[in-house]
Design a protein around this nucleic acid. Sequence first.
DNA 1: TATGAATGAGCCTTCATTCAT
DNA 2: TATGAATGAAGGCTCATTCAT
Lengths: 221, 221, 221, 221
Amino acid sequence: MTEKQQSGAETRDRLIDAAAETVRSQGYAGTSARAIAKAAGVNSALVFYHFGGVDPLLLAALDRSSEQRMAAYRQAVQKAGNLEELVETASAIYRADLEGGHITLFSELVGASIARPELRSEITSRAEPWIEFIEQALDRVIGGSPLARLLPPRDLAYAAITFYLGVNLFTHLDADRTRTQALFDLAERVAPRARLLTMRVPGRRRPPREGDRPDGTAPAR
Amino acid sequence: MTEKQQSGAETRDRLIDAAAETVRSQGYAGTSARAIAKAAGVNSALVFYHFGGVDPLLLAALDRSSEQRMAAYRQAVQKAGNLEELVETASAIYRADLEGGHITLFSELVGASIARPELRSEITSRAEPWIEFIEQALDRVIGGSPLARLLPPRDLAYAAITFYLGVNLFTHLDADRTRTQALFDLAERVAPRARLLTMRVPGRRRPPREGDRPDGTAPAR
Amino acid sequence: MTEKQQSGAETRDRLIDAAAETVRSQGYAGTSARAIAKAAGVNSALVFYHFGGVDPLLLAALDRSSEQRMAAYRQAVQKAGNLEELVETASAIYRADLEGGHITLFSELVGASIARPELRSEITSRAEPWIEFIEQALDRVIGGSPLARLLPPRDLAYAAITFYLGVNLFTHLDADRTRTQALFDLAERVAPRARLLTMRVPGRRRPPREGDRPDGTAPAR
Amino acid sequence: MTEKQQSGAETRDRLIDAAAETVRSQGYAGTSARAIAKAAGVNSALVFYHFGGVDPLLLAALDRSSEQRMAAYRQAVQKAGNLEELVETASAIYRADLEGGHITLFSELVGASIARPELRSEITSRAEPWIEFIEQALDRVIGGSPLARLLPPRDLAYAAITFYLGVNLFTHLDADRTRTQALFDLAERVAPRARLLTMRVPGRRRPPREGDRPDGTAPAR
DNA sequence: TATGAATGAGCCTTCATTCAT
DNA sequence: TATGAATGAAGGCTCATTCAT
């Protein structure tokens, strides 16, 4: 890796960071190539040189952010032994992400995909792994239980994503964050009750199977 | 009233309709004065003449839409005697609204308020009545019950708004609407179970009080 | 004169006043039909109905202002018996006019005539009476004197108009008015010296002639 | 340096020239970014790219013009040994400047500063050097004389600027330039008389001092 | 006489994008 | 790899002007 290449990689890095930051603070509508470049301290033509446009850069930023967040969630989720713990630990990370703006990036891009058909499939495909991930995490803690029969993990995953996307918008209606806080408290208050429904009838407990993955991931559906 | 010079009120009407329609199909970022005017079939200067700008026009559109939707919900909610029915009727209207794009308008404006501080307070104040409304509707069907102690109507209202805002974005990740459908099914499957918690212990039942309003509205908190 | 006509005359009055005021405060470039109408509290279409456009209205305003100012100068100038007094009294009125903005109106229109050829002749013809007036006033106090031979009243009138137009612009470079004040002081300090040159040699004094007008006006050249 | 991509400096040059030219022919009110760009033969967006807006470009044009004019005046003034010569040589250059439109640029910007408060300080500060310059030139030829006691150079400088700004407007009232010509003749006819007052009484003559600058500049006041 | 509505042109400004260097 | 220059297309907004009422 030559000096130039290093410099090029660094520029890409800075653009990606700046892109994420700009979406967070200005929204998708306020995120122009110039705005990003200015935040990154580089020439705006580099947005096109390195990424081909604003949208591809934004997707790159989403990819990076998504990767980092997924790793954090994965690690935390693994430690959760039951639904109660899962909700609790997920809440903790999510609250941090909310403050950090990680959700805004995703949420804004989903919103922007209304007007940009070419963004749509890109966004959709990037959302899939999250749905999978959530489903598996839920399956691990409630799979086979009466609760899972009432609320299938797959559907609960949809609900979680909906919540995930909605909270970000909801915070805009909640200047002092008290309402958002109440929302998380609510989730944590519900979880213990719901957990009662995860107590499996002895003998009906789903035995460990060959396909089970110790890291909590699951095979593609 | 000639062809050229309509009542003015009609032009405003058409602009409001066109504004809502444009936001639905193009998103906030794609909603320019010119785009709205084109959809309305009028000169774009009229956006400024009648409303002073694009954002005020959008707020007017939100006001109109909100008013209509609120009326529909209010009527439907009044008929609901218990939580189960409430969720069921609300779901029905909401699904229709989702298709009709009423939620997109609100959701997009909430998202746009990131970059437009002057929109923020306008949006916030317009969200309040909805929170109130939901809270009161819930209070009517679960107030005083064990469920309400676990999940206070106010907090549940926050959750409902979050869900309301989130579903709109979620549909973008759901081309064939099957997931969104699953989401509603889920809600309707949970409601009957939750309703069990609304059965009030005899004697602990909250007696009707003087302040109770037969029309389902509630006094300001 | 019916009620309507009265009302119409009043509207014209208000528009004229508002036009002058707007030019003073916003300059010609900032003086639109709307701006004038707003200042007058009437509908902007009336600018066109009553005057045919912004420029004609501005000319009407100039006419009114010019008439009023001319009357004031004429009266004051008549009282002046010599150059010294003439400069003194003219300075006094002019200073007041400067504060009142009367000069700005004229000055701005002269400037605007660069870009509006159709304004040019209108302005030029409206300036003529002033040149005549100044020339006659000077002729009355220095006519026939050695000073007049050195500085012909006609040419001095040009100088006075130049000064008249220039001071208005100069005040913009003089936030605290001290410089403008110094300018007037200068003129008043020069006048007594120059007056020495108006002392006519006995016998060479120009005798009163038939055409002389007691009111200080003069026939057209 | 291809046809499309010039040095950038050249484009700036052309824009500055075109800006000055447009103000001269169309006045400030008629000087839009488009008009300038058209005159320069470039895209109007370059006005913003290179200068940030029309006003800054106009100020840049004023700066260039001012610099050039100041250099010409400085050189000419240095050759003038007495008031008579000073007036004569200054008149000659000024007449040329008037024809060339250099004064219009300044004059129009001063006039425009009525409506643009942000222009005001820029214009004011650009006028200062001229006032200084004139004062020093006068001080050199009449400093210490009885004339200077009667008409302090500083105040005379104000008068000169006033005249400078006024003549430009006055020419608009003078299609055939005969009046303007008379104005200059007047000045040149007065100067020799005034010069008599610069003859210093022997013994009261101000002796050369250490601080005197051979180049005709003077220390800051 | 007065108004509100309407229009098309024009203005300032920003944008995405390209290109020569 | 990076930059500054350049462009044409929009976008928000204001304007003069006209017209029906």
